[in-house]
Amino acid sequence: MLTDTLIEDDRWTAAELAGLSERAATATLAHLGLDPADWEISILGCDDARITVLNGDFRDRPQPTNVLSWPSEERGADAAGAVPDLPQPGFDPELGDIAIAYETCAREASEGQKPLSDHVTHLIVHAVLHLLGYDHIRDEDATLMQATEVEVLGKLGLSDPY
């Protein structure tokens, strides 16, 4: 199994975070030509209080956010808009960790008038891409990352979230 999901907030159990995460992460890796069986990702399903602490500790932004990711190593591309160097199997299989906050995700899904499952799937795809070195700080990188997200979501039968 690609994802190992730890549920700290029981609402994530009802929202089927483990299944959504496995499906989204598998689709993302497969889309990029990586065999999901070669890799591991840890997912934490938490609440806004917990993600506020994590966001403060790791990003110096003590406020809730929807999702955070911690890649096991830096994989970003040097050139703006270039595809990051993807990991090679046979070494450390751990791609990194993801935390996702229930209240923020539920609020964003409601505000966007979309099913929570669709929004969570999008956020997990987004976070997995971060683990693989994709980013959205530079405009060219954001364009590449968003296009990749839309392609993966399309393969999962979900519409363009942008």
Rank of each mutant, 00 (worst) to 15 (best):
T3W: 00
D9Q: 01
W12A: 01
T13G: 04
T13Q: 14
A14F: 12
A14Q: 05
E16D: 08
E16K: 03
E16T: 02
E16P: 00
E16Q: 05
L17V: 04
A18T: 03
A18S: 13
G19N: 08
E22R: 00
A25S: 06
A25H: 01
T26N: 08
T28Q: 02
L29R: 04
A30T: 10
L32A: 04
L32I: 03
G33L: 13
P36T: 13
D38P: 01
D38K: 08
W39Q: 10
W39P: 03
S42F: 14
L44D: 11
L44Y: 14
G45C: 05
G45Y: 02
G45F: 06
C46H: 04
D47M: 04
A49F: 14
A49Y: 10
R50W: 07
I51M: 08
L54H: 01
G56N: 10
G56C: 07
D57R: 10
F58E: 08
P62A: 06
P62L: 05
P64G: 01
L68Q: 05
L68K: 01
L68V: 04
P71Q: 01
E73C: 11
E74D: 13
E74M: 11
A77H: 04
D78A: 05
A79L: 15
A80D: 09
A82R: 11
A82G: 09
P89D: 15
D92E: 14
P93T: 11
P93Y: 11
E94F: 08
L95M: 05
G96I: 06
D97K: 12
I100G: 01
A101W: 04
A101G: 09
E103K: 01
C105Y: 05
C105W: 05
A106V: 15
R107P: 12
A109Y: 08
A109I: 07
S110A: 15
E111G: 10
G112N: 15
Q113N: 14
P115T: 14
P115G: 14
L116K: 03
S117F: 15
V120E: 02
L123E: 13
V125D: 01
A127Y: 01
H130Y: 02
H130V: 08
L132E: 12
L132A: 05
G133P: 06
G133L: 08
Y134D: 07
H136D: 11
H136L: 14
I137E: 11
D139Y: 13
D139F: 11
D141A: 02
A142K: 08
A142F: 10
T143A: 15
M145N: 13
M145I: 11
M145T: 15
Q146P: 13
E151F: 06
V152S: 07
V152F: 06
L158W: 03
S159R: 13
S159F: 08
D160W: 05
D160N: 10
P161H: 08
Y162S: 09
